[in-house]
């Protein structure tokens, strides 16, 4: 496939992914509302919010680094999405996944977070660095079980290529990594809770403590870019998990179903828990999720 066509397809894919991320976020708001006994907003509420935020008549900014946070947040999300194959066997939807491997993807997750932190800190609001300090602390903590799981996955196929990891899982549900190495999967899925920032790990934006953390000063068009970045980042992460543990997807429908299931795991946990304190969250991840990850790696070594 020529590069131009591929870029065009990827662009379409990015737009679809943003829309899908917004729809998922809308469904989550609905589900959360139903758990709380409310009716909840319409599922397309996120689109209305996005439109409203873009159509804001005035905007304020601080220094020039202020621009960086939304750009890095959205750039990190889009970049991550572009590096992960969405549907196997369809070149149009496999994006640029052959230009990078699992390590690159892992570090691209940090690209968004770190860039966002840098930009948000420029606003000069004390809530931003406090939120960032919490967020980065938690990020390092869930990184350990996540890294253990990644290492286990990669060691199994002796390759860091996501494509290879998907290929080894073909041939039925029993070949999926979630069943062949459940311990590593447990570690990774608990790390996923921390990544998604739902309770009990939503310590970054904690409204009762530091409303609303890093994006406190963001408004108007900055906020809209941040919202779309968050949407696509969520989609990219669940696609990555689908590829690693649920055997990838062969059709768009399968991708929708699998990603949806993965995402709702964190939502259902988040609906019924209060929030950890920062050091409690860090200690939690360094506790038994790490043990599960170590056991997962041992499982690979024994085999």
């Amino acid at each position: 496939m020529p590069l131009g066509v591929k870029i065009a397809w990827s662009l379409v894919g990015v737009l679809v992914a943003i829309a899908y991320g917004l729809v998922i976020a809308g469904i989550i708001r609905k589900v959360m509302a139903r758990i709380q006994g409310r009716i909840g907003p319409p599922v397309w509420q996120q689109f209305i919010d996005l439109g409203k935020v873009i159509f804001q008549r005035t905007a304020t900014r601080h220094g020039w680094m202020f621009y960086l946070a939304p750009i890095f947040r959205a750039g990190g999300g889009i970049g991550l999405y572009l590096l992960v194959p969405v549907v196997i066997g369809v070149p149009a939807l496999s994006n640029f996944s052959f230009d990078g491997d699992l390590l690159l993807v892992m570090y691209f997750i940090f690209f968004g977070s770190l860039g966002m932190a840098l930009g948000a800190a420029d606003s000069g609001h004390p809530h931003s660095p406090i939120g960032i300090s919490r967020g980065l602390s938690q990020m390092t903590a869930y990184e350990l079980p996540f890294a253990l799981a990644m290492v286990a996955m990669a060691a199994e196929v002796h390759s860091f290529s996501i494509h290879d990891i998907i290929m080894v899982q073909q041939g039925g549900i029993l070949h999926w990594n979630i069943l062949t190495n459940p311990l590593a999967a447990i570690a990774a899925f608990i790390a996923f809770l921390g990544m998604n920032m739902y309770a009990p790990f939503n310590i970054v934006g904690a409204p009762q403590e530091i409303p609303v953390g890093p994006p406190t000063e963001y408004n108007s068009v900055f906020l809209s870019l941040m919202m779309s970045g968050r949407a696509i980042l969520a989609v990219a992460k669940i696609v990555l998990y689908m590829d690693l543990f649920l055997g990838g997807a062969h059709s768009i429908l399968e991708a929708f179903v699998k990603t949806f299931i993965i995402y709702f795991w964190s939502v259902f946990v988040g609906a019924v828990f209060p929030r950890f304190r920062t050091e409690q969250a860090v200690r939690f991840f360094l506790g038994w999720p790490t043990v599960a990850g170590i056991a997962g790696v041992l499982l690979v070594l024994i085999r």
């Binding site: 758990i35 709380q36 006994g37 409310r38 939503n202 409204p207 019924v272 929030r275």
Partner: peptide, 16 residues
């Protein structure tokens, strides 16, 4: 008590 720790469901039920 639990709403201050960001748990949304219980305060919703209790206020209802």
């Amino acid at each position: 008590h639990i709403g201050a720790m960001a748990m949304g469901a219980a305060p919703n039920w209790l206020i209802a």
